[in-house]
Amino acid sequence: MSLTDVTTWEITKKQYRYKLKSYFGVFSSLVAIQLLAILFSLNGTGMSGGSSGTFSYDVNYYTGDIIQVLVMIWAFITAIIITTKAYRYDDYSFVTNRLISHYSNILFLFSASILAGIMVFFTGHLFRLITILLKNTDSIMVSELTLLGTLKGITASILYIFLCASIGYFVGILIQLNRLFSFLLPVLFVGALFVDGMNNDPTVFPSIISFFGSENFLFLFILKIIMASALFYILAISFSNRMEVRP
């Protein structure tokens, strides 16, 4: 009997390649979400107008914010779903262990975030095109990004999506550990929102959001996202190390 020796990295690569194919369904839900986001965005996010003497103006604002936000929620949900039984055990039909399963999931989520981020950018253009065709305005203002700006924007978009995925992954693992969390976590979250906003001066959530959102240096932003998502993944991995397969 000759036993095969394999390394973690070698199998991680194989599992990752397998997951790219086997979790392909996430992208069909991504398409559905993006179409929904376009629908929501068609209303525009705002209007402003005014006049002074002989000069008057009306501005309709359209942003890709909704697309971005919905895709972030999608990433969150997707990450939860791949921790559920139906998906978690796919890799156990082949060679793996817990750590490899996590590593390949993280790699998968990262790749999915990259693709989703790029698709957010393109979907933004699809949305723009649809709006142009539907709208009758004498002028369309496109604050066109430079190539560098575009790349920075896509990077930021991807990282936001990835952050949501890592939170979702952590939440998913908690729920797999104990079903109670699926009830407890939303209650805690909404409860915290209420408590925070009780005196009409929320501080905790805005400061968490501005921790990322107000960071104008891309490098520091990347660092913050990586640190935060690494934290969630490390917690998820350490919590799930004793979990059994198909018990």
């Binding site: 309709n60 890709g64 957010v120 002028s139 369309i140 430079t146 924007g153 930021a156 959102g213």
Partner: peptide, 17 residues
Amino acid sequence: DVNFTRFSEGFAFDQFT
């Protein structure tokens, strides 16, 4: 009379530009 429509890619794109 200026009537225009303004597009932005979203906050992730605005943040670093």
